[in-house]
Write a protein that binds this DNA or RNA. Structure first.
Lengths: 215, 215
DNA sequence: ATCAAAATCACCATTTATGGGTATTAAGTT
DNA sequence: AACTTAATACCCATAAATGGTGATTTTGAT
């Protein structure tokens, strides 16, 4: 190849970025053109620098990997995304693929495999590490999981906001006060959230929130 | 220094280990003598290899960093431990220090600072990254926090059991049914748990449960 | 301009959870 | 044997959350 594959890395841990860098620095046909510690930074970078593939973490502050992925695919459809996550739950994988990711590997991947993944993605193929592929094999870990996927439209901004406040152990009344809205409204939101996520109670909301990096 | 500082790294993510390795490989007075992906592996390694400092992650499978830390300090009191974690909550920091850790830094630390931390620890001092020190400054994030520390004995077996069931979105009645005890008892446990953890509601219990790997 | 989704609010009733206090029994420790 | 903790259970009252239904307004997209 005449031109090396240009890579951008987005991950909130510098040390992890360094790990990736050290794995790739001696590979002649791959070059790292930049790095970001969150989704916002990444999107800013993308306006300036040209690159082929983004290595994207999911758990990041400010704008997480899911939001970033959706945004990137909207603004730069040609850009390819390889998710590098520590989560290998079906929900995550499915979600990221729905949002337009081109591949998904677990962070404990070996350098060799990472290189292979990048090459595959660049060649227009999808790539999943074996852990990930395995996770997708099991038909349905929980009964609610199907329901969860059916209702997997993302929560609205307001709903996310409320989930975050719930996660701070606030009651509906306190949240209403915080957001200058009625308690009824908060409770309506609460119930809509429970329905959307296919969970039973606030406890389920919390699990979702933590697993999806909302807290 | 005649002898380099011998380091062992324990972290469940190989790529992170690689990140640390690449940061330290050109430092002549520091040498990495081994790595482990969980607490058990680490303890096995320690029986064979001699080393000065363990870089220890908290979140690991099989045996996590807390258990490993306690065990190491019991079996090898002279060995020094630098916690390398992504959590900078007071609870974690305090806990690890109680368990005998010698320093605590956040994973997004810069390589320079990591080296400094290792040197300090090896010199018999403690070391905390500025993030961590800052986190410890705030006297009490919540008023109940003091209470939290006073009551920081771990939950009893029964209580842990109930936390796990709560995490499955079960109501007190359902839990009572599951455990063949009265609903009153479950509610008493529930309230004791809330008090012990210094949280406000079931939401707080959930956060604790998830962060401490009970679910 | 029109349509769909999101956000807002209220009424109802019922179920759950929280907070206070009290008490008994079993199990384990010193 | 004396003491502590864990586990069990109940009383009362209040606060909070859940479920159902219906409705208006704002906002965003086609």
């Amino acid at each position: 190849m005449a031109q090396p594959i240009r890579i951008l890395i987005a991950d909130d841990h510098q040390m992890f970025i360094d790990g990736v860098r050290s794995s790739l620095e001696n590979i002649s046909h791959i070059t790292i053109v930049g790095q970001a510690h969150n989704g916002e930074e990444l999107l800013q970078l993308l306006s300036d620098k040209k690159c082929d593939i983004v290595l994207l973490d999911i758990t990041m502050p400010k704008m997480n990997g899911m939001e970033a992925c959706a945004e990137i695919k909207k603004r730069f459809p040609a850009l390819q995304i390889l998710v590098l996550s520590m989560h290998n739950e079906q929900e995550y994988i499915r979600k990221m693929m729905e949002l337009g990711a081109d591949g998904y590997v677990i962070k404990n991947i070996e350098p060799d495999e990472l290189i292979r993944a990048i090459e595959k993605i660049h060649a227009g193929e999808h790539y999943f590490s074996s852990d990930v592929a395995l996770a997708m094999m099991s038909p349905a870990p929980r009964i609610i999981s199907e329901q969860m996927l059916l209702h997997s439209e993302i929560l609205s901004k307001r709903e996310v906001q409320i989930v975050k406040l719930i996660a701070q152990e606030m009651t509906s009344a306190q949240i209403a006060n915080e957001l200058f809205i009625s308690e009824s409204t908060v409770e309506t939101h609460r119930r809509n959230i429970i329905q959307k996520l296919g969970v039973k109670s606030t406890v389920g909301i919390m699990k979702y929130a933590i697993q999806h990096g909302l807290v």
